[in-house]
Design a protein around this nucleic acid. Structure first.
Lengths: 337, 337
DNA sequence: TTGCAAATTGACAGCGCTGTCATCTGTGTC
DNA sequence: GACACAGATGACAGCGCTGTCAATTTGCAA
């Protein structure tokens, strides 16, 4: 039969409640008792039964990671975040569950309610663009479910993790400017993703700082997908004055731009410099390898989850953490010819 | 306060136990009662509390999906399987949890035990190469935990899903042969993955059927990673008699081969045909787009989970399902020049 | 030494379900 | 009309923990 808390209590000559206290790191247990109980747990390889703990304690020790499977079909970006969140949850003996939540349609709040009623997560980790749907955040607050966000639009009143994407984008464009490029195009992402706005803003900031007036034809709307990158690039290549460099708002679109460049017979980087954002594995597998901004997705997932866990464990230490980025110069960018 | 089973019972004028029977689709409930109870549940939006159900019923309604994070860092293949497994679990109101289980080291059985004791899954879905570790399978059987496998080496005594990978590989090589290629190289995968053996066997079968003696220099061992594809290709290109086509055992290695080809100044497909296996998103994003075998990973995950759920729900209908593959001819293969 | 607050420990009920087993109801048989 | 029997329903305890609150012990000032 399995070892129960009661068995540990008997072995350590204390009451079950005291074992429970030790298990949950509660105060008011003498050091001697704590050590004795810990030793007994260890010796018997005691594992608390999650369902009993949940039922009696009215909490689930479960963190749900929410993602929008509308825009993110099986993406590497999410898989990396998941990996980090999982590590953080494991380290605090919490379980973790990935849950898609399609943001299309107007019943997503109802679907969120169902998700909560069905699984009772103690807290949730939000990924873009779910980070920014006000009705959803409101509902989470109403139901008293703490959440932490990865790269939310607003840093105010939010815990989680973000990166200075605008400065990263600006850094990327400055790299292109330093190579002598002046006609630099930008392929932006879906407009309701915070990332799209920041990256576009960084582009504009760098261009303006270089004294270049914005040419509206050089900014094309994409959708963060490979296909949308291809389309955007075709549009750019049809311009009378082609850009000499394209900064795509993510790597998938950048790979689409490179694909379209090949299609149009343009050599990268000789005829066209291309760069992206995110540094997904694909970036280094392309030929030429893609110059991009490295975003530490895995670490960001871990950090966001750790902030959430601080709240769940009743510490007031949770914050909005900022993570560093880095410019990865590879072979897809070169001096303008 | 939340709606409890007792509340539903009162509303439907039956005992709690009868509501429980309806909830669990048990026999010996009259149709009239069943409908009345269902209606009450619906009207009150009743959601059973998972922890209470688990505690009383001694089962968790949890399916764990195990993967080896040693060889599979955040791969798209796994993300797609996960997506399918999740869909299947949702449709039967089971929860699903991704769990890495590093197969390196000799304590993986102990780590499996810990995983089971900590989370109490009712069943597990196994992904390659975890599908084939005998001690692990033995332990699962000892502990009475049903499992279903995705592409296990042995189809005997196993439920889950597989694909005829050998025939798929043979089909791929036959495609190359039909283009006139004779010096066809193969970059194989990690040897303890079933996929490596089948794909190599399919290659050999096709070559032999075409009356070509095997040239050992044309078969290079890889590791399913981009980098190993690059290395293998460099090795092949250094041969006195270069191959005119390379069949890599997966898409990541194929992309490595293409990268090395670019590096060596070889044009794909004019100077070298390259093809892969799996059809991950990357395959269509490469230039030229990669000829490959499409493997329906998402569907396979779903099918494997459904087989497992059959067992968990006490039906004896579970089997080893075979899924179809398809040859995706794109731009990376062309007639030999 | 005494007294009192704080720290430590324990008794007990109950979280919301399901397993077991007893009871009841309706049907068919002779 | 009495009896047997399968099907339908319910009573009740208890799954393994934690919350509440009471009891006990400890530390320390007077």
């Amino acid at each position: 039969m399995r070892v129960r808390l009661e068995d540990v209590a008997r072995a350590a000559s204390v009451s079950p409640k005291t074992v429970s206290r030790v298990l949950n790191d509660e105060a008011n247990v003498s050091d001697a008792t704590r050590l004795r109980v810990r030793a007994a747990m260890e010796a018997m390889d005691y594992r608390p039964l999650p369902s009993a703990r949940s039922l009696a304690g009215n909490r689930s020790f479960l963190v749900a990671m929410l993602y929008d499977n509308n825009d993110n079909p099986a993406s590497t970006y999410l898989a990396e975040i998941q990996d980090g969140v999982l590590e953080a949850c494991d380290s605090h003996r919490y379980s973790m569950m990935m849950r898609p939540l399609r943001m299309r349609g107007d019943d997503f709040v109802r679907r969120l309610d169902a998700l909560i009623s069905d699984h009772h997560p103690d807290g949730v980790v939000l990924t873009p663009p779910i980070t920014d749907y006000a009705p959803l955040l409101k509902r989470l607050r109403e139901r008293g479910i703490p959440y932490a966000s990865v790269s939310p639009m607003s840093r105010a009143d939010n815990i989680g993790v973000h990166m200075d994407e605008q400065r990263a984008a600006r850094t990327m464009v400055e790299h292109l400017l330093s190579l002598g490029h002046r006609r630099i195009a930008h392929v932006s992402g879906i407009s309701d993703h915070g990332a799209s706005g920041w990256r576009l803003a960084g582009y504009r900031e760098a261009m303006a700082a270089a004294g270049l007036a914005e040419d509206p034809a050089l900014v094309v709307q994409g959708a963060f997908t490979f296909g949308s990158g291809v389309d955007a690039a075709r549009q750019l290549f049809a311009l009378k004055q082609r850009p000499t460099a394209v900064f795509a708002a993510n790597d998938d679109m950048a790979s689409g731009v490179m694909w379209a460049a090949h299609e149009a017979g343009l050599k990268v980087p000789q005829d066209l410099s291309v760069c992206g954002f995110d540094d997904i594995p694909l970036a280094s597998q392309l030929w030429p390898a893609l110059t991009t901004i490295r975003q530490p997705s895995r670490e960001m997932g871990k950090m966001a989850a750790l902030q959430l866990l601080e709240v769940l464990r009743g510490r007031g230490e949770a914050q909005m953490m900022q993570m560093p980025f880095s410019l990865e110069v590879r072979d897809s960018t070169a001096p303008v010819s």
